[in-house]
Amino acid sequence: MSLRIVVCVKYVPDATGDRHFAEDLTTDRDAVDGLLSELDEYAVEQALQIAENADDAEVTVLTVGPEDASDALRKALSMGADKGVHVEDDDLHGTDAIGTSLVIAKAIEKTGYDLVICGMASTDGTMGVLPALLAERLGVPQVTLLSEVSVEDGKITGRRDGDSATEQLEAALPAVASVTDQSGEARYPSFKGIMAAKKKPVESLDLDDLDIEAEEVGLDGAWTKVEDATARPARTAGTVVKDEGEGGKQLAEFLAGQKFI
């Protein structure tokens, strides 16, 4: 039986750009160029490696997002994933993490899966809660924040470098996993991969296809509300001196003035 791997990826505004909020206090996705979240590249990489080590496997990349988010799918397909699923619906604008997890969980169930792999967090929202939410919704084990992962005999094992300890984890498939940026560099798409990706199938789904009501998602369906967003005042320019042999002492003088020594 083929091992069905679904990788969840997000299309995010480039972190090196000047990210802003839109008027409705959602992330402004027009002001800055988007791309496949770098942290999800690690998830695609691990999925491809697991697939390469399996007798028979299929890697599906799944994204929820506006039309442009198809760029993220193309990138993952050009790295080597087999097919894509794009959930797109105008009513999704402003959906919070809980709502997003509903949409993704339904799309994963519709696609069919043995293993779901996510990145450790998005580079825009940075909450890092989606894998746990998916595991809760799908009712399968959560094997998250792995810096090493392998799949064998219907079991997933991996190393989690946690807050205060390193843990070796094990669970039976089906399961939801997430991998960190310590799991291994992601491959670059090859020219051949980029050409092949253009022909790979991408299924489009909307809320109707997933039996989700518009009220369950979007800004109005969110269970949290952003009331205010203000740009952090630029730090007042500090003193910068050139070391002429006394730099360390000058710095000590400053620290003493601030009562740190």
């Binding site: 730090r235 500090g238 001196v241 050139k242 070391d243 360390g248 002492k249 000590a252």
Partner: peptide, 19 residues
């Protein structure tokens, strides 16, 4: 920064530590 030193850390940091 509130305070910055443009220089070689191998000069500046040990001097700071000593101070």
């Amino acid at each position: 920064v509130d305070y910055g030193v443009v220089g070689d850390l191998f000069e500046v940091v040990p001097q700071l530590t000593e101070e």
